Amino acid sequence: MPGNPLTDPNWADETTDTVVRLVGTVRDRATTPIVYAARGLVFGLIALFLGVFAVVILLVGLTRGLQSALDWQFEHARSVYVSYLVTGGIFSFIGLLLFKKRNANAS
């Protein structure tokens, strides 16, 4: 009888292979997507934080560089106000362009 474990010499190997295959299938279907989602979430949050940090440092550097460039033309207190005005004007212009494009596809 091939189903009898006492007379079948391959019974232990076949049973072990079946259990290993079953556990591998369950692991692949259950834990692998969760691991990928967790990795994506962690790496996405790290990228988001680094991106926000880079933008803040860029804006501070842009404003400070503009102040230093304007120091030769104006006194320091005035160059600070002019740099804020120029930076605010640039961002206002970008905001107006984006505001204008918000309904461009709806027409």
Rank of each mutant, 00 (worst) to 15 (best):
I46G: 08
L6G: 13
P33V: 08
D28M: 00
L45E: 15
R27Y: 13
D13A: 14
L41T: 08
I34V: 12
P2C: 10
L70Q: 05
L66Q: 01
G44M: 06
T18D: 14
G44F: 05
L50S: 07
A47K: 08
A69H: 00
L85Q: 07
L6V: 12
P9M: 05
V56A: 15
I57L: 11
P33E: 06
G51A: 03
P9S: 04
D71F: 10
P9R: 01
G44D: 01
L62D: 06
G65S: 00
G3S: 13
T87L: 09
T25Y: 12
L22W: 03
V55G: 11
G40L: 04
Y36F: 15
Y81F: 02
P9D: 08
R21L: 05
W72S: 13
L6Q: 14
D17C: 06
W11N: 09
Y84E: 04
T16E: 15
Q73G: 06
I57R: 15
V60L: 04
L41G: 10
T18R: 15
Q67K: 08
L66A: 02
T87W: 02
F74G: 07
L70S: 05
P2E: 13
N4W: 13
F91K: 02
T15C: 13
D8Q: 07
Y84F: 07
I57G: 10
L41K: 05
Y84M: 05
D28E: 01
A37C: 11
A69P: 00
E14T: 14
F43N: 06
Y81I: 03
L85S: 09
N4V: 12
A38G: 06
T31R: 12
T7W: 12
S68M: 10
E14D: 15
V55C: 12
A54K: 01
H76C: 00
G51D: 00
L48Q: 09
T16C: 13
T63D: 11
G61D: 01
A77D: 10
V82W: 00
I57M: 10
L48N: 06
F49Y: 13
L6A: 14
V23P: 10
D17I: 08
L48A: 09
P33A: 08
T15Q: 13
N10P: 06
T16H: 14
D17E: 12
A54R: 02
S92Q: 11
I34S: 05
G51E: 00
N4P: 13
S68Q: 12
I46H: 10
